[in-house]
Design a protein around this nucleic acid. Sequence first.
DNA 1: GAATAAAACGGAGAAATGTCCGTATGTAGA
DNA 2: TCTACATACGGACATTTCTCCGTTTTATTC
Lengths: 206, 206
Amino acid sequence: MARGAAGTETRKTRSDAVENRRRILEVAREEFARSGVEGTSMHRIGRAAGVGQGTLYRHFEHKGALCSALLSEEIGAFVGEMQRRTEGRGPALGRLKWFLGWVARFNEENGPLLGAIRDASSGGRRVELYGNPFYERLRNTVVELLDEAVGEGEISPELDVECLADMFLAALNIDLYLYQRHQLGMERERIMGALRSLLDSLRVRV
Amino acid sequence: MARGAAGTETRKTRSDAVENRRRILEVAREEFARSGVEGTSMHRIGRAAGVGQGTLYRHFEHKGALCSALLSEEIGAFVGEMQRRTEGRGPALGRLKWFLGWVARFNEENGPLLGAIRDASSGGRRVELYGNPFYERLRNTVVELLDEAVGEGEISPELDVECLADMFLAALNIDLYLYQRHQLGMERERIMGALRSLLDSLRVRV
DNA sequence: GAATAAAACGGAGAAATGTCCGTATGTAGA
DNA sequence: TCTACATACGGACATTTCTCCGTTTTATTC
């Protein structure tokens, strides 16, 4: 406790560690694409990346964390694009519908991967569906749009927009979505239709 | 294919199998209570019940299935009571609100257990949130109540009640519920308030 | 009651996840 | 460049879930 006034003395990350982390992600992406998340063992990822188990787990606490890191990369672009396009103008409720449709399409495309990822964790370390940066951004967008809708007098100011935002997103929850699509055989358009009708019913009638 | 006209010839289940199944459930309930779901291995359950792994897995395909079976027992009474009390009369939408409130209260009481159970499975065999008998019954009840509401002219006949039923239940999804309660610090009454306002907005205005 | 075949049992072991700790290596200061 | 040590590496291993298959038991038929 003698040196470094702030006590936040920090050493540059070792270059081999940086490189290893990069290679693990690269290899994992390939292997997951080839054999699926389930079908790819952590052991194999380690070997393919040329690192031992200790190293692998030093970088990613568990398989779910590795999946999350991978998904984060994929998601980045999606969220950016999406948020930019919801900033347009026009009735906020209309933009919210469009936004939720986009989320449904994302489910459609990444459903299998998301499902696999959600299944991939064990030992109580499942990938969190809520409370991660991705969900926060989705949630914020919905809240903002609902707020705008309130501001524009489209919907009642008495509504609890925070809570409703969660509920609209829950309607597109990946677990439910997969169940409706594959177990119940509903089409995406049907699901979106129901959700839209719910949004429309919020409208204040003159 | 000579005997048994209907071809549904069936043999009485072996008594040892019946007894083993019963004992496995009994032991599992105890061990889970003592050490938690996570902290109890299938191995241990087998030993404590006096059966081998093969037998254990013959009765319950995977740990999640055992959890489900256990939960089903707990749930039985709950669902019966619930369904009986929703058969009363009065406006269907009001009864639906009451019913969903009941589900929320169930979440409140069994949340930690449900969460633990949901985490407990591995190898892609997690406890299914959808498509199990419990969910089916919840879903059916909501669908029936919505249908009644349509019949009584409370809500529009154009609504997709099947799909909406899933969405209302999704609003009380255990994962979301736990997140709202503990991460976001929302009270149960707040959550129910938002859900009720959503239901009210469905009303056809005169 | 004995024969028979279907059903269930048991436990070794395959395969996966995640931990531990002795060893190696890169970074910073002299 | 040399030294010191924080940091990262590696792989054996403990633990767990679930499978496989030879053996045993039970219900049924005669």
